[in-house]
Simulated scan of single mutants.
Amino acid sequence: MKADFDQAAPNYDSHFTFSEIGKMQRHLVYNQLQKQLKNTKKILEINCGTGEDAIWLAMQNFQVTATDISEKMIEVAQSKSNVENLTFKVLDINKISKESEKFDMIFSNFGGLNCLTKSELGLFFAAATNVFTDKGKISLVIMPKNTLWESLYFLLKFDFKNAFRRKKEVVFANVEGEKVATYYYNPKDVVLLAKVYFEIVAIKPIGFFIPPSYLEPFFTNKKILLKGLRFLEKGIKEWSFLSKYADHYIITLQKK
C-alpha cells in the first residue's frame, strides 16, 4: 500500500476535519462507536490520518496506538497532541500482523480500508485476529457502492460516467493531485470477507441525509438546509438497511 496521502496531509483538516460536513459525519461515527467501547482499554487505530479520532479516544481515557502509512499525516497528528496515553506511528495496514501488542479494539474511520483490494481486505481480517485479545472488536467506517447522494449529484450534472462509479471494480480518486485506487464495499461484501474470523455486532449508516464532504462548498451558505439534513439523519441512525445507500457506514465485528 502506497503513502498516497502524504500530499493531502497539510490541507486535510481544513478540507475535511474542520468542515461542517466533516464534523457532522464524525459526530455520527462517535455516537455509534461509543456503544461498542464497553470493556475496552487498548485501541489500535489504523489509517489515523491527522489524528483527530485518536486524540478523541485518548481523551476518553483509552490507551491508543494510532497508525497511518503516511509519514506526513503522522507528523501532523503528532504536532496536535502530547497526551500520555496516545502513541502515533507509521504502519502499513498490510503489515498489521507485525504489531506485537494486543488490543481490545481496532478502529478505522472514513474509508481507510477502501484503499485495499478485495484480496488485501480478506488478508487484513485474517491478520487482525493476531493482534486481538479474546473477543476483540473491530469497528470500521467504509464507503459503500450504492451511495444515493453521489449518484444524484452526478446525474444532476449530466455526468453519467461518474453517477454510478462506485459500482466499478476500482476508481482512481483525485486526492490533492494524486490518483488513489479506491475500492467500494457494501456491508454484505465485508461480512463475507470477514465471516471466517468475525461475527456481526452492528451495521449503521453514516451520511444518508448528510452529504459527502466534497459538497461542502455548495452548503457553505446553506447552513439551515444542512442543519435540516442533520436532523433527518438523527431519525434514521439505527436503520441498518440504509447503510449501503449512505456516504459511509460503520460496521462492528467481534472476533469468534
Rank of each mutant, 00 (worst) to 15 (best):
L226I: 04
F164V: 13
N162P: 02
E178I: 14
N31H: 13
Q32A: 15
N109G: 02
A58P: 01
F16H: 05
S97A: 15
S108G: 11
W239C: 14
F16T: 05
Y153K: 12
M24D: 08
E52R: 12
K244T: 07
Y183K: 06
E52Q: 13
C48P: 04
C48W: 05
R230F: 14
I200Q: 09
F154R: 09
A246K: 05
I206D: 04
I93Q: 02
E150F: 12
R230M: 12
L33N: 00
M59S: 13
D92A: 03
L232Y: 03
A173T: 14
H15P: 00
D4M: 11
N31A: 13
T87I: 02
K167C: 08
T117G: 11
T117E: 13
K244Y: 11
K80Y: 13
D159V: 08
E84G: 00
A126E: 15
L116T: 02
L156W: 09
L226C: 06
D6K: 05
E20T: 13
N130I: 03
W239A: 14
K42L: 03
K161E: 14
L123T: 12
T220D: 13
K255Q: 11
K23M: 12
N130L: 11
Q63H: 06
E169V: 01
E238C: 10
E178A: 11
T133I: 02
F124V: 03
S97K: 14
D247Y: 04
L225P: 04
K168D: 10
V196T: 15
S14D: 14
Q7Y: 03
K234I: 05
P144N: 04
A127C: 08
S139V: 00
T182V: 07
S240F: 11
Y249A: 01
N174V: 09
H248N: 04
I200L: 15
I106M: 07
A173H: 14
D159M: 08
K204V: 13
N94Q: 13
Y185F: 09
K222W: 09
Y183D: 05
I236G: 09
V90P: 00
N82W: 00
K188W: 07
Y184I: 09
E176M: 07
I46Q: 01
K204T: 12
D247T: 07
S100C: 09
I206G: 03
S81H: 02
N162G: 02
A127E: 14
L116R: 01
S100K: 15
R26T: 03
Q36T: 05
P10A: 08
I93N: 09
K89I: 06
I250E: 01
I46M: 04
P211I: 15
L140F: 12
A181T: 10
E169S: 03
D92Q: 01
M59A: 13
V90A: 00
H15V: 10
N11T: 15
L113C: 02
I55V: 01
G51K: 02
D92K: 04
K167W: 14
L148S: 11
A3T: 04
H15Y: 13
A173I: 15
T67R: 06
F16W: 14
P217Y: 13
L121P: 06
I206L: 12
Q78V: 06
T252G: 03
L86M: 00
D6V: 06
F125Q: 06
F5T: 00
F124K: 01
T220L: 15
K244R: 10
Q254W: 07
V191W: 10
T40I: 15
Q78G: 09
K118I: 05
G235L: 15
